[in-house]
C-alpha cells in the first residue's frame, strides 16, 4: 500500500506543479486542485496506513479497539477539503470575471495591476515600455 500511495502523491505533485507553470489560468487552477489532492493524501498517509476499521468506539467500550484507523488525519482532511473547495470556487469566480473583463484567461494578457509607472511631470523620465507580446 505504501508505495502506491507515495507514488500517487509524487505523481500528483509533479502534474500539479507542471500545471502551475501554465499561462492559462484554468490550467493553473486544475493544477492547484491536483496539488491539493496530493497534500490530502500526504496527511492521510501521515496518520499511518494499514488499519481499516472505522474509528468508532463500540457501545459500552470507552476506547477505540485495536486495528481502527487514525481519526485525526480524516478530520484534518475533511477540513482541508472544505477549505480547498472554497478557495477553488473563489479563484474560479475570479477567473470567470477576468475572462469577461480582459476577454482572455492567459496570464500574459492580464496587466491592469502593473501598468507602467505614472511619472507625469516627475523628475525622472518614464522608463521605456517593456516589449510586450503582440495581443
Amino acid at each position: 500500500m505504501d508505495p502506491v500511495i507515495s507514488l500517487s502523491i509524487g505523481g500528483l505533485v509533479a502534474v500539479g506543479v507542471y500545471m502551475f507553470l501554465a499561462h492559462d489560468l484554468p490550467r493553473v487552477l486544475i493544477g492547484f486542485v491536483l496539488f491539493g489532492s496530493a497534500v490530502n493524501l500526504t496527511i492521510f498517509a501521515s496518520g499511518r496506513l494499514g488499519a481499516t476499521l472505522p474509528p468508532f468506539v463500540a457501545p459500552g467500550a470507552d476506547a477505540l479497539a485495536a486495528g481502527t484507523s487514525n481519526p485525526l488525519p480524516q478530520a484534518l482532511i475533511l477540513t482541508a477539503i472544505v477549505i480547498g473547495f472554497g478557495l477553488t470556487v473563489f479563484a474560479l469566480m475570479l477567473v470567470v470575471r477576468a475572462n469577461r473583463e480582459f476577454s482572455s484567461v492567459d496570464a500574459a494578457d492580464l496587466n491592469a495591476a502593473e501598468t507602467p509607472i505614472d511619472t507625469a511631470k516627475s523628475p525622472i523620465p518614464p522608463p521605456a515600455p517593456l516589449a510586450k507580446k503582440a495581443a
Partner: peptide
C-alpha cells in the same frame, strides 16, 4: 475594477500555492 481583478488573481494564486 480591472486592476483589482488582475491584482486579486496574482494574490489568490500565490496564496493558493502558499497555503497548500
Amino acid at each position: 475594477t480591472r486592476a483589482q481583478i488582475d491584482g486579486g488573481l496574482r494574490y489568490v494564486f500565490l496564496n493558493l500555492v502558499g497555503t497548500t
